[in-house]
Amino acid sequence: MIVSFCLPVPAGAATVYETQAEFLARAFSDSPPEPNLLWLSGERKSAVRQILGHDYPALRLRYWCQADRSAWVLEEIGKELPITVGIIIDKSYIRNLRVLTYRENRGGEVATPAFTDQFNEAALKQSGKLDTGIDGISGATLSVQALTRLATMALMLNAESNCSSGA
């Protein structure tokens, strides 16, 4: 109990690791395509709700698609604030997942490549879950879960997008 005397005062500053423009430039060799739209309605909305445990806080999403590659910028709340994540998918496998902006006071370790590289090559199982086990980080459980949900959601949306058919 005495140890908790040293609890830090929340700082509340967002850390931007990569802007959306930088992420897209990296995903598509400096020439990102025009975005596409995906509306979250009907069964798709229900599927997203099942993955996240709540509705996604927007009615439509944009994604970028070139050949078999798609890029997604999604947000999910870790504990109190949204984490912005960029996800690159090749065919139906995650090529790269990167935290673009982290706003929580604790749990920023999820932005390190040591953690995010675990998502590389992850795909969806028949059950709709990730086929790769993601090791947690002590003290960042909610952020880890948020990123895992977003990876699952991106793979599910990719399968429904034009990109999955190589458009």
Partner: peptide
């Protein structure tokens, strides 16, 4: 936002 105030999309300006 839709007319009821539900967020349709948040667009970074850039």
């Amino acid at each position: 936002l839709d007319p009821q105030g539900q967020l349709i999309e948040r667009l970074p300006w850039g």
